[in-house]
Design a protein around this nucleic acid. Structure first.
Lengths: 197, 197, 197, 197
DNA sequence: AATGAATGAGCCTTCATTCAT
DNA sequence: AATGAATGAAGGCTCATTCAT
């Protein structure tokens, strides 16, 4: 059954299967065979295309980060003011795609993996820095530099926090409420600014 | 050379070793033998006392949660007003003991484990609910119920968010700054309340 | 881009690549893919031409033996007396081509392979018998039959012995010295014969 | 079925099984499982005791070399003159134990392994150097230094050569004849010396 | 003629767990 | 109480070989 030009399809299938499998299992303790089976191929073929289990995971992570990047880009692109752009970033972070069970599970497992894999840590860092500079750039058009930095940190922490709580706690607020809460954090700062001059 | 009354000491040694080992390895992918070696005993004995690897991890987690509970209790007990008590909870969450590398690593790994272990999930839930009701109880003495709930959610998310960022990002703010940022979130709400009457 | 009449070239390329690869790796533990890559083709094509890995090795071995046969033939052909012909055989055995690292490695690995491959054993046997009868034929013109047999055995053993030592030991004598030592063995017998009448 | 104090027995069993298995298979391409099965244990236990396949092979090789060393020591110890001691070394090299099929197979495979394993090469080197200095020491009491070196090289080569031929060729001379042939090489040199004064 | 694609079989190694002492 | 001994089960990875194109 070998066919030509399968590489991109197989790679895509493996990456998707990896994310689904992590979600289903809730661990990185999943075997290459499991993933390959779900992707409809032999584990040998998975190695043929990716070289090693590590590379499979990295590819999956890259895709998740890339999809997220696109989401942010799209939402931010449609906004016109700094405040709107910040709200767009927040919304993108909680976009429904990102909030699917398996994606959140994947994020979490990647976080853990970052603790002892430099490659994974590097990838996460890229994401974190991009988010940070993105927020900071827009916040600086509203607040002074020191305040902007504070708000950026606070927003990022809140986003990550809700993300994780959503993954783990049944009584965590639902997506729309989460968006409102984070957006409201920005509003609180805007109010303080208005108050203090 | 077996001795009497060793059980509690052995268990304690294993639990401590588990936490240290998780911190050192940055994964839950550590073997019972590794832990046992660090605790100065054979892996067979570890099984004798705990029954299974799962139970070892659960015991370690219970200890971490218990230590945290004590920390909160102590700090909150010393406070006299609702606002102070909330600040005490925040401070306790970022107490230096909790912020040590290995503890944060352990937390993270437990989060992941919660994704597919009901037992772990239950334990985490207990912690989360306690924190939540603790915050809520004090916030309700300041804000109306709806607002209190919002602030509680926001605070909890921020705490978790900073916690994780601290574990993973080199450029995350340091402990004192983190405390200030979270406390400031409470202040923002107090200011809004003062403004709106 | 398939071409006509490629078969002999491809086969030759594979055989040469096999010998080089064995020399480079120092084992028979080399993969068909490695050889094929070095020969500039796909492993699938290698199978197409040779059928199996075993056949590839056998072909390589046949070539080595054939080259050696030619070498002996050429050198012996130029000699005119029995003594000279024997010396020619010795020289041919240590001809510089035969003494290259990869060839010696290949010989050694073939020896081992002979232990459990009848086909390989048969090939080695052909070589050994030819060498033996070659020596014996000439020795019989100098010595009585019993002595000739002894000298033939001794010479063959010495040749093989130096061959192997050359492959494995840093302090083994160099090629010219080896030739002298083996030739000298013949001289020792000639001297004894002269002495005893 | 675990019992105490099994380590030495298990190690011995594995080493013996390794040699037997190499002999039976005629390759180093034997699996740890095969060896372990022949030694009556699980492959996991084999790793428990040796750590890796490589270590198993090295241990087997060390034993073969050690047995050979003992053999030489015993035979040489009983001799009284330099000539006798050299003859003893020759005899030891072809001692019946050393000439068993599986031992010869093991030697050969080790030779090959030496081509790409420094550890194996080192072990073989130790053996070769010991044999060489052993021969040289005694030969120097008979011949001048230059001649002694030549004879030592010639003897060593002959020994190795017959060894290998014995392993591979059906028509190679039998053990007693081999001994005589090699010893005779020494005699040829003694005769030449007597002749030349 | 030539190759990318595909797989089954197998190997080394690790590990949680149990058992005899 | 404590441990060395022992194993079954699995997992990642490799490779000769075959198939579709």
């Amino acid at each position: 059954m070998p066919k030509y030009g399968m590489e991109p399809l197989r790679r895509k299938a493996m990456i998707d299967a990896t994310i689904v499998e992590i979600g289903a299992a809730g661990t990185l303790d999943i075997t290459v065979s499991q993933i390959a089976r779900r992707a409809g191929m032999s584990s040998a073929l998975a190695h043929y295309y990716f070289g090693s289990k590590d590379q499979i995971f990295l590819a999956a992570m890259r895709q998740i980060l890339e999809v997220f990047r696109q989401e942010v880009k799209a939402q931010v692109g449609a906004a016109t003011s700094p405040t709107d752009r910040i709200r767009a970033i927040i919304n993108a972070s909680f976009a429904s795609d990102q909030f699917k069970h398996e994606i959140v599970a994947a994020w979490l497992t990647f976080y853990v993996r970052a603790l002892h894999s430099d490659e994974v840590k590097r990838l996460l860092d890229v994401y974190a820095r991009r988010l940070h500079s993105n927020l900071l750039f827009n916040l600086r058009q509203i607040f002074d530099d020191v305040t902007a930095e504070k708000v950026a940190q606070g927003l990022a922490a809140m986003i990550d926090g809700f993300y994780i709580r959503h993954a783990l706690q049944d009584f965590a607020p639902a997506r729309p409420d989460v968006c409102l809460l984070v957006t409201d954090y920005l509003d609180l700062w805007l109010e303080r600014k208005a108050l203090n001059g």
